[in-house]
């Protein structure tokens, strides 16, 4: 029983960056933009969040953990937005190829993260960039009086760091937004058929920019989760290492539904930490390829059975130019 609960908790913790990446990309793709730069935006968010908290700590001698957390969230979000903004400007305004632009963003973002990570480390007196214990503790699990103490339930639901709850809240809000609001309906129309949305008076450009940028910001927070929670506030070279790509695949697994993204990231989080909890007697390097192998299987399974309602927004990958004929 304890193993199962531990596995579940570890899966939630490992799955949360995937959840952020997946949610960000779902929002992006709902606008018809296929942004393959998730990995890059996560790197950008990872370094921005860490650097934000780090400099805050340097400037104020008595840092407050809460303020540092807010700074990390805001900075990583904004840096993700910055990446997505470059992408939107190139694809929406300048109409460049979405695939290549997304890959360029990944190359850029990966370089950006590692570059500034190294700069930060190189300038730290100790030779590596790390935040202090005060700040580190805000990114550890929370403790809610009474709730966290309930046997099993407390550990299962009330023991995580605050970002886990932020991720779940974003998923719920996104589900509500897409299905129950006017703006959500408009966004879906933009992704399905931008010409029809345009003719109905929707500002296609605005929706594409907003959805892509907010999506990028959410991916950025996911990156910050990697640097602040998984790497405990220390810059680790190449820390995101493929999480962004799995998130892109999870969007397909989740069939563009935020609620199913919760399940998907939990499963994939579980796969990535399995070697610690489920001994199968195989080398750890083989365990490490499980998430990727599972992604391939998911791709194949979802690709073979396709439905009209739960499929990719129809215009995804194509740029819209009103005057094209």
């Amino acid at each position: 029983m304890d193993t199962v609960i531990n596995l579940f908790c570890a899966a939630v913790l490992a799955g949360t960056p995937l959840l952020f990446g997946t949610l960000g990309e779902i929002l992006t793709e709902k606008s018809g933009n296929l942004n393959l730069g998730v990995e890059g935006m996560m790197f950008m968010g990872a370094i921005a969040g860490l650097a934000g908290a780090y400099f805050y700590e340097q400037i104020f001698t008595v840092p407050s953990g809460i303020v540092a957390a807010i700074i990390a969230v805001v900075f990583s979000f904004l840096c993700g937005v910055l990446g997505a903004l470059i992408y939107s400007f190139l694809t929406v305004t300048l109409r460049s190829n979405q695939n290549v632009t997304g890959l360029a963003l990944t190359i850029f973002g990966t370089g950006f993260g590692n570059f500034f990570g190294d700069v930060l480390a190189g300038r730290a007196p100790s030779g590596y960039a790390a935040v202090g214990a005060e700040i580190k503790s805000v990114f550890q699990g929370i403790k809610i009086p009474f709730l966290s103490d309930i046997p099993y339930i407390g550990k299962l639901f009330f023991s995580y760091n605050f970002l886990v709850y932020v991720g779940v809240i974003i998923a719920v809000l996104m589900h509500f937004f897409l299905n129950k609001t006017r703006a959500g309906l408009n966004l879906r129309a933009v992704g399905e058929d931008p010409a029809a949305a345009d003719a109905a008076g929707i500002n296609v450009t605005k929706y594409k920019y907003l959805a892509t940028c907010i999506g990028g910001g959410i991916c950025g927070i996911g990156g910050m989760y990697v640097s602040m929670v998984i790497c405990s506030g220390v810059w680790v070279f190449n820390c995101v290492g493929g999480i962004g790509w799995i998130a892109v695949a999870l969007v397909i697994f989740a069939t563009w539904s935020p609620s199913r993204a919760l399940l998907g990231s939990l499963i994939f989080g579980g796969l990535s930490i399995m070697r610690l909890y489920v001994p199968l007697g195989i080398p750890i390097q083989i365990y490490d390829i499980f998430p990727y192998l599972a992604t391939v299987i998911v791709l194949i399974a979802t690709g073979i059975r396709q439905s009209k309602e739960h499929s990719i927004p129809k215009s995804t990958g194509l740029n819209y130019f009103r005057e094209d004929r």
């Binding site: 190139l90 632009t101 360029a104 850029f108 590692n114």
Partner: peptide, 20 residues
């Protein structure tokens, strides 16, 4: 002491400009 990742940052920037 400029990190070698500068290469990918520059590559990315060049690609952005050429795409645009």
């Amino acid at each position: 002491k400029i990190p070698a990742s500068a290469a990918s940052v520059l590559t990315g920037i060049i690609l952005f400009f050429m795409l645009g």
